[in-house]
């Protein structure tokens, strides 16, 4: 399926000071099918297919974990914050209910 994946993670471009807040933006292509929709032509229920968890790791620890249902919109955008400590990657992992997994990272610059 073409319209799935291509995860993106964005951290602030300019270097942050230790203790400053960083807005992290994420985006991934995913149908986010709730399992509550019917195919208009066949009448068949479209099976549930949605991202269940997103986790963010930074500085060796999981700093944020989101658990979703099929009520999150298609091709989900998601943003959150973290407190800058040391320069390094922010690793984001998406997992869906069919066991597929995507990983992407952004480098956080800290002065």
């Amino acid at each position: 399926m073409a319209d799935i994946g291509e995860p993106k993670v964005r951290a602030p471009e300019k270097p942050l000071k230790k203790g400053e807040l960083a807005l992290i933006k994420t985006l991934i292509k995913h149908p986010m099918e709730s399992g509550l929709r019917k195919d208009k032509n066949t009448g068949e229920t479209i099976p549930a297919h949605f991202i269940e968890t997103i986790t963010a790791e930074y500085g060796g620890a999981t700093i944020m974990k989101a658990t979703w249902t099929g009520a999150v919109s298609k091709n989900p955008f998601f943003s959150f914050y973290l407190k800058a400590d040391k320069a390094g990657p922010v690793n984001v992992t998406w997992k869906d209910n069919k066991g597929q997994e995507w990983k992407e990272k952004a480098e956080l610059k800290v002065e």
């Binding site: 807040l21 960083a22 930074y58 500085g59 620890a61 999981t62 700093i63 944020m64 974990k65 989101a66 658990t67 979703w68 249902t69 009520a71 999150v72 959150f80 914050y81 973290l82 407190k83 400590d85």
Partner: peptide, 12 residues
């Protein structure tokens, strides 16, 4: 719709 778990390192 969803749940979000934070830590002090989330900052906000």
């Amino acid at each position: 719709v969803g749940r979000f778990e934070f830590t002090p390192a989330s900052g906000k």
